[in-house]
Design a binder for these strands. Sequence first.
DNA 1: GCACAGGTAGATT
DNA 2: AATCTACCTGTG
Length: 288
Amino acid sequence: MPSKFSDWELWENAPAFTEASLKETLLGGQAFRWVQKEDFFEGRWATQVVRLRLVEEALYLASCESDARAALDQYFARATDFAGMTDALPWRSDPIMKTAVEAFNGLRILRQPLGETLFCFLCSSTKQIPQIKAICEAVASDMGPKLSDGSHALPDWLTIADAGEARLRTAKLGYRARYIHATACFLAEHPEWLMQIESAPTEQARERLLELPGVGRKIADCVLLFGAGRMDAFPIDTWVEKILTRAYGLEGWNLPQLQTFARTHFGPNAGYAQQYLFAAARAGYIPA
DNA sequence: GCACAGGTAGATT
DNA sequence: AATCTACCTGTG
């Protein structure tokens, strides 16, 4: 059976990854539609189906669509200077930050489609990454449009709205189904809404996102960071809260106080710092 | 059986 | 304004 994928080709001017930073970028909880195969990663977003393979610091790609290269540039935010942003983080004075940056140097923040990012993180509350991925896969298989390799994309909001809450519950969404369906109904009625979020300043965009059912501060910040390129958005989940309270010694601080600390200590790219810290804590480099 | 998992919203103190 | 609690489901 002929493969739908193109032959492997070198991705010229690709982002500089290490094995650890590539794996963490794709599988570390920013995105939920990447899987690791024998010697490559396979991922889906929008209408794309892409394979990536790191061979001695060179990145090779195989894809199903002719516009994969341009889509990859966008998805990986290739124009964004992550090396420069890393250098600007306070690793020189902060040994915790230094540990995280050294372990995952080259880590990137993906620029995922905003709507898909919102959907995935609405699925994420009190779920672990493997479960979130399973839910996304189930919803895509059930109601997402077919991709050229026979797999499925995530459905759009109108499709989710029409499907109804009960249909979503068959994907094991549980109580999240009500939030997702209500959000879908709102977005189906307001097709320009997500685009306005993309162009609004971070503070305003966050306020708007918080109006959606099921979206609190943590999910709003994940959507802004991973789906809108807002490096100042600093999601505080249970991991990050533990890192801040224990490793940084901020016991007793409440969430708004921790947000203020993050902004002042990590600077304008605090969200990027958060992803380094999150990765390092999960890998055991930082006691959490 | 029971606690807990990359939360949120509504009620209660 | 800080602190419970219900909400689904899977995992250990």
